[in-house]
Design a protein around this nucleic acid. Structure first.
Length: 570
RNA sequence: GUCCCUGUAGUUCAAUGGAUAGAACGAGAGCCUUCUAAGCUCUAGAUCUAGGUUCGAUUCCUAGCAGGGACACCA
């Protein structure tokens, strides 16, 4: 939409003799104009000062130019810049009719039409806890799924669960050593995480003595030895059920779960094949490796000296299997950035094995605490359940205080939606690839850059319509009545949404959407605080409600991409 | 030791090489006899250091310092 405006201005600039690529930006201050054209490049070509070039262009602008481009109302120079003012009523017509026609599909494109993509997340580990790092993975993954689909891609989500690694061995070992015959508590998935942490700590401190036991246990597990297999299956089911519950709560829907245990044997076969082909070689202590040093990727181990597999072993087979089951053009993995190097190795190893599919790794930043990093071993991880319950508790207090007259069920429903919105927003409000510091106090502050701030605006707009007794159908709107500067600012923000969506996709960064939703809400609040919307005469009311409605549509669409549900009242 | 990422207000974060470096929280001062005050005004407050490239550097390059991560039997 804003692209359309820029195209028109670029056309106008060509009419007055500007050649080549035209880049337009936004002036720092609306007083200066709505769209800026910087004259630095032209100044070089023409051997004139940028300010003189801007002035020359300005002098060439005549009345008939503005007649031909009704979106452009006026222009002015400001030093080296030629700034354009957009006509609010024309912008309103363009933006409001566009949004009314497209609804929540506003901003969607077809750039990915005909392309099949597989996205793999959140890839939990059984027998471990589910903490807010995993939550961030889920939230970012969910949004990328929405973004790809909104851009026309045929996207399939899968989940590769690691149920067969050394972490499982440690947990099972710990269960037998410290909790033999113990009945599991109410949430066994979470309990396994505790046992894993306990076992890891013990193993770290007694490595030399217990190492042989662990190696032995891993061999038995991979051989499906009946001595350990039933315990494995029982406990794995606990984890899988727990994860399924969380996944459902957070709104993930993948079409297939791959388990490491179902591909590991094939992975071992592939290692043998790679040995024969000479891609893999025997390294230190008899471990099997792929030498990636010619590619500056060190050495990748594909089988331990004990004969047991590692992640890479299984990942080779997974790649083979998933492309067989899903004939896609590209496969995307979402994991923490600490695996960036590992994925470079994996992709190179696959390439050397003869794989020729496009594979992308998206690494998201870790979640740290204000007092340092989270680690299972330090026992300071923030668990998903605990965080959710704490946020729900604080939201309940705030909501109950505001709505003393609401029945319990209504409050419960509100708090449930708000809790998820807060969780999801807090995980996506900063650049995806960057580590973030998670502060509970900040996450439970429902003012400013937060989900409740944005949701509040949606509720406010509902309230406006309720007060006006006005339907949402296509209103007859006199766009000439929208003349206030706050209205223009709001229209400009609305017009920018399609660009924002593209940027978020290109950078694999949901924060672009979060930031936008906040900016839009803030721009609306500025208007709301300065202009009456309902308590004005009928025609003006229609025009303003149409604008409010568009703002609500776009806010809902933006939040929808973040898989955040809005509320009617709060 | 090698490689990757990051250094911006007290704190958490923004800023395709461009105009006066933006927000939010926190601090201080205000605004509900107008549509939801989970809101809105106003004030104070920052680019790690030293060089370089450029008309112009938070952004690009080099070096240093600081933090994080990864570097074959961990996941």
């Amino acid at each position: 939409m804003m692209q359309h405006v820029h195209d028109k201005i670029a056309d106008l600039l060509r009419d007055i003799g500007v050649e080549g690529e035209i880049q337009l930006t936004v002036p720092p201050n609306p007083e200066l104009g709505d769209v800026a054209f910087a004259c630095f490049n032209l100044s070089k070509q023409l051997q004139k000062s940028p300010a003189a070039v801007a002035q020359d262009l300005m002098n060439k602008l005549e009345a008939h130019h503005f007649e031909r481009y009704p979106l452009v109302q006026d222009a002015a120079t400001a030093g080296p810049y030629l700034n354009f003012f957009i006509k609010t009523s024309e912008l309103a017509k363009l933006v409001l009719t566009g949004i009314a026609e497209q609804g929540e599909a506003y901003g969607h494109t077809a750039v990915g039409a005909g392309k099949k993509v597989l996205i793999e997340y959140p890839s939990e580990n059984t027998h471990k806890e589910f903490h807010i790092g995993h939550l961030r993975n889920v939230c970012i993954g969910n949004t990328l799924v929405q973004l790809y689909r909104a851009s026309g891609y045929d996207l399939t989500a899968i989940n590769y669960i690691n149920d067969f690694g050394a972490h499982v061995v440690k947990c099972l070992w710990g269960l037998r050593k410290f909790h033999a015959g113990v009945e599991p508590p109410a949430n066994p998935q979470r309990w396994l995480g505790v046992v894993y942490a306990e076992a890891s700590k013990y193993i770290k401190e007694h490595e030399v003595e217990v190492k042989p036991e662990l190696d032995e246990l891993q061999k038995k597990l991979e051989a499906r030895d009946p001595e350990i297999w039933p315990l494995f299956e029982t406990t794995r089911a606990w984890s899988l059920e727990g994860f399924k519950k969380i996944d459902t709560e957070l709104g993930i829907s993948y079409t297939r779960i791959f388990l490491e245990s179902e591909v590991k044997d094939r992975g071992q076969q592939l290692v043998d094949e790679l040995l024969q082909k000479g891609v893999a070689t025997v390294g230190e202590k008899g471990a099997i490796i792929i030498d990636l040093t010619p590619y500056d990727l060190d050495i990748a181990m594909v089988r331990k000296s004990t004969g047991a597999g590692v992640y890479l072993t299984s990942d080779l087979a997974l790649a083979e299997k998933k492309f067989q089951e899903f004939p896609v053009d590209e496969s995307i993995n979402i994991t923490g950035i600490e695996q960036n190097f590992y994925f470079k190795q994996l992709f190179k190893a696959l390439e050397l094995s003869g794989f020729q599919k496009k594979m992308t790794h998206i690494g998201y930043g870790l979640v740290n605490r204000p007092d340092g990093k989270m680690s299972s071993r330090l026992g300071n991880v923030i668990l998903y359940d605990e965080l959710r319950d704490e946020i729900a508790h604080r939201l309940w207090e705030a909501s109950a205080a505001r709505h003393a007259d609401w029945p319990q069920e209504k409050l419960t429903a509100l708090v449930k939606t708000l809790t998820l919105s807060v969780l999801k927003f807090s995980m996506q409000q900063h650049e995806a690839a960057k580590n973030i510091t998670f502060d509970l106090e900040q996450a439970t502050n429902f003012e400013g850059y937060s989900a409740p701030y944005v949701l509040y605006v949606v509720a406010r707009i509902n309230s406006l319509f309720k007060k006006a007794g006005h339907g949402r159908g296509l209103m007859v709107v006199d766009y000439d009545l929208l003349i206030e500067k706050e209205e223009k600012q709001l229209l400009l923000v609305l017009a920018d949404f399609p660009t924002v969506l593209q940027k978020a996709l290109n950078h694999h960064n949901p924060a672009v959407i979060s930031k936008y939703s906040f900016d839009l809400a803030k721009t609306f609040n500025d208007w709301y605080a300065n202009q009456l919307i309902v308590d004005v005469e009928a025609e003006l009311q229609s025009a303003r409600l149409a604008l409010a409605s568009a703002a609500q549509t776009v806010l809902t669409a933006a939040l929808g991409l973040l898989t955040i549900t809005t509320v009617d009242e709060m």
